[in-house]
Design a protein around this nucleic acid. Structure first.
Lengths: 184, 184
DNA sequence: GTCAGGGCTGACCGATCGGACAGTTAAGGT
DNA sequence: ACCTTAACTGTCCGATCGGTCAGCCCTGAC
């Protein structure tokens, strides 16, 4: 029952967005998307070149916005650039929050799945500890920030000796939590 | 040619550790591991109950160390707990850096693969901008921290209104970078 | 009416993957 | 020499997934 001018396309994108954010890209099959939309798998591949194409179309706006921010930053002086980068990056991450979740979903799944099942609870208690057991949402946010900051830095390939890295991570984390003298 | 008392077990774990960290858990097949080790796929399944079991055995030490830190923190007062949580968490993340990379690999792959291929470069320039275009490794570390902090916080499910969240993220990021906001 | 074409589908395909299993080899105790 | 047992493997299997293809159905132009 041919629907009006590919209204299905939009439904596919919306369903894929939700499923990718909930189960990750790899964890979502074309069959899953088709089931949610209520069409056949072949129909997805009629509207999109492939699974890749769906993801690409979903993430493209975020990618373009990031590129725009990048271009904007190149024209700024060394001093103003930091503040602009921070506000711009935060704004982008918030605006494309669902896209960020898609990218992060595999990590979430991995943490919940593997080894000791208690990790999510443990991580939650760690956040609580980092927040000084405060119930203030703001302090909880900064606690999450520290969690992600250390995690991503260790996952990256910064060529800094471990001792210096540990020192800098602790200092940076304490600054983030507003628990340290701010002189460098 | 039965090797001495399952020396193969250790080789399997080592090969899996490297492959998982390089291509991710899902991106590595039992066949890949067997090829690197130089044995058959069936041999892996003789020593381990399944692919899951290999991952579990690799991540267990990290999980146990995290649980130990958690237990250690519960005995501390609200004031001392923050510093202890920070130093303990940083220490753990550094000690189990390869394990962290395994968990993060899927994200890295996703970022590199998807939508605009230019994202890795753009992200690198963003780090440079956040570091105030300084070549100081320390500032580059803090820039990575901000990248991860905002990213993970946005991926998490903190129930804070977007406006408050944006404000707190910007403030926290500037503190991390040791660039306390001048106004507000 | 009929013809064309976009929208859509069921059925099928090849590849890949994790896993099961019977059988083989080598070592060590008796 | 014989037997037991651990270590290891070749081969097969079922499931899943992304993707292809011939063809059906509905609509609108003529």
């Amino acid at each position: 029952m041919a629907r009006s001018a590919s209204a299905l396309r939009g439904q596919i994108l919306e369903a894929a967005l939700h499923l990718f954010a909930a189960r990750g890209y790899r964890g979502t099959s074309l069959h899953d998307i088709a089931t949610v939309v209520g069409c056949s798998k072949a129909s997805l591949l009629y509207h999109f070149a492939g699974k890749d194409a769906i993801l690409t179309e979903l993430l493209s706006p975020a990618g373009e916005a990031l590129a725009a921010l990048d271009a904007e930053l190149t024209g700024l002086g060394d001093e103003r650039v930091v503040e602009a980068a921070v506000t711009g990056y935060v704004e982008l991450a918030l605006r494309f929050r669902r896209e960020v979740k898609i990218i992060f979903q595999d990590v979430t799944e991995m943490i919940c799945h593997s080894a000791l099942a208690g990790i999510p609870d443990t991580a939650d208690r760690l956040v609580t500890a980092l927040a000084g057991r405060s119930t203030d949402p703001k302090r909880r946010v900064t606690a999450y920030m520290v969690l992600g900051a250390v995690f991503m830095t260790c996952a990256s390939d910064v060529d800094v000796p471990d001792d210096a890295l540990r020192d800098e991570l602790v200092r940076g984390a304490l600054r983030t939590l507003d628990r340290a003298p701010r002189t460098l």
